[in-house]
Design a protein around this nucleic acid. Structure first.
Lengths: 219, 219
DNA sequence: AGGAGTTTGTGAACGGGAGAACAAAACGAG
DNA sequence: CTCGTTTTGTTCTCCCGTTCACAAACTCCT
C-alpha cells in the first residue's frame, strides 16, 4: 500500500462538504458497530443517503484514505473524519435556557458521545435554580462569565424564548464564546467572527407544509 | 396603483427560496407587532438576516407585491407569503416519541400559531401512556392508523430513539402520511413521493466544532 | 406639470456544488 | 508475470443560487 496522502492542512473544505461529514461519521460508526471493517463508497453512500460520486468527492477533500479496488477501512476513515471535524477533542458547552428544549438537549446522549461536554446549565428564572437536569445543577445566568472563563468554553447553546436570545448572545460574545447554536426563533446579530447556526423547528414544518400543499394542488 | 401581478400559480419556486419564506414571514410578523405598516426590501432583509437583492428576487417568485419608490405593505405581504407557504390552512400533525424532545415539541407554541395543530401524541412505552403533555393525552403508538385516518393527517413528526425511527416511518407511510419531520439521528428510507426533513442536533454542533477548530488553528 | 429622489423587479454575470464519466491503482486468478 | 475485475480519485460539464447593476415605476416637492 502506498502512503496515504493527506492534502495541505490549510486547505479549505467546501461548506456543503463540511455539513455532510458528520453524516458520514455517524454512518461509519453504525457500520463499525455492526462489525463491518471495510466498505465501498457505494455502501457508505447508501448508509448516508447520498450519491456515491458526491461521497467520494467529499472524502477527497480530506485526503486519499481509500484503497482502489477495495474500498475504505471503516475504523481508519472514521477516525480521519472525526479528527477533521474536531470531535476527537473535548468541547465544553454551555446551555442557556432550561425549558423543555433545554432539558432535551441536556439529556441528549448524542452530544457527549461526540466530544461535547455540557459544563453548565443556566437559566434566568430563579424558580428553576437548583433543579438538577441530566445530573447537572441549574445555575443562575449571571454565572455565565465565570463558567466560560473557568472551562474555556467556546461553544454556547441558546434555548431561551425569543425575547431573551439576543441578550444571551451578547453576553456570550462579550465573554469570549465564538460559536453559538441558536434554537430561539430570532435572527441573532453578532460580530462577524462569531459563528451562529440556527435550528428552527417551525420553519422545517413550514417547508414541509409548502410541499404538502403543492402535492394536494396537483393531485 | 397598477394591478399587483401574481405569476402563474403552477410556477415552481426554487427550493432555496422556499426555505427562506418562513424567515421572511416571521420577520414580517415581528414588524407588524411593532406597529410597522410599510417596509423597504432593505429593512426586511436586515430583519431576516439576508441580502436585500436576494430578498427581492425571492419575493419576485411569488409575484409583484411591492410598490416601487415605497416598499412593501407589511400586512399584505405577510398574508401573501403565508398563503404561499400554506400556513393559512390548518395542518393536523402527529408526534411520535414523547421523550424530552417530543414534550418540547408538543409544548412549542410556534407550531400552533402557524396553523400546525398537534392532534395526537403517541409513544410505544406503556409507562408513558395516559400522561398528559401540553394538554394532550399520550396514546398507544398502535392508534396511529386510526388517528391519521380520522384527522386526515399528512404530516408526522418522529422524535423517537434512532432504533425505532425507521419502523415508525414505515407505519406512517403505510397509512398515508406524506411528509415527515425526523429528529432521530438516522437516515430514513421512504418512497420517493414522501418528503422527509431531518433535524439533527449533534450535526449542527459538529459543524460549529469544525469551524471552531479552524479558528483555533489559524489564531 | 416636471424633475429629483427612492425603491422595486429583473436581466446578466459569476461562483459553487452535483453528477457523469473515466483514468489510475490495487487485487486475485491462472 | 499478466490479464481481467473492482473501486477509488479526479476531471469536466451542467445547473442552481447568489450578487451586481440598472431600467422601470412610484412619490414628493416646487
Amino acid at each position: 500500500m502506498s502512503a496515504r496522502t493527506s492534502p495541505d492542512s490549510s486547505r479549505d473544505i467546501p461548506e456543503a462538504t463540511v455539513a455532510r461529514l458528520p453524516i458520514y461519521l455517524r454512518a461509519l460508526t453504525t457500520l463499525s458497530e455492526q462489525g463491518t471493517s471495510t466498505c465501498s463508497s457505494e455502501e457508505l453512500a447508501v448508509a448516508a443517503g447520498v450519491n456515491s460520486a458526491k461521497l467520494r468527492k467529499d472524502l477527497s477533500y480530506l485526503g486519499s484514505y481509500g484503497t482502489r479496488g477495495v474500498g475504505y477501512d471503516v475504523e481508519y476513515l472514521r477516525y480521519q473524519i472525526a479528527r477533521e471535524i474536531g470531535v476527537t477533542q473535548d468541547w465544553p458547552v454551555v446551555i442557556v435556557g432550561i425549558g423543555n428544549l433545554g432539558q432535551a438537549l441536556a439529556n441528549y446522549s448524542g452530544f457527549r458521545s461526540r466530544g461535547f461536554r455540557v459544563v453548565a446549565l443556566l437559566d434566568a428564572d430563579p424558580a428553576r435554580r437548583d433543579e438538577v437536569v441530566a445530573g447537572i445543577e441549574v445555575q443562575a445566568f449571571d454565572n455565565l462569565e465565570q463558567i466560560v472563563k473557568d472551562h474555556d468554553v467556546a461553544i454556547g447553546v441558546i434555548a431561551t424564548p425569543a425575547v431573551a436570545a439576543q441578550d444571551v448572545a451578547d453576553r456570550m460574545v462579550a465573554c469570549g464564546v465564538t460559536s453559538i447554536l441558536n434554537f430561539a426563533p430570532i435572527v441573532l446579530s453578532v460580530p462577524e467572527q462569531v459563528d451562529v447556526r440556527k435550528v428552527d423547528l417551525s420553519i422545517e414544518l413550514q417547508i414541509l407544509a409548502y410541499h404538502e400543499q403543492r402535492k394536494a394542488a396537483t393531485a
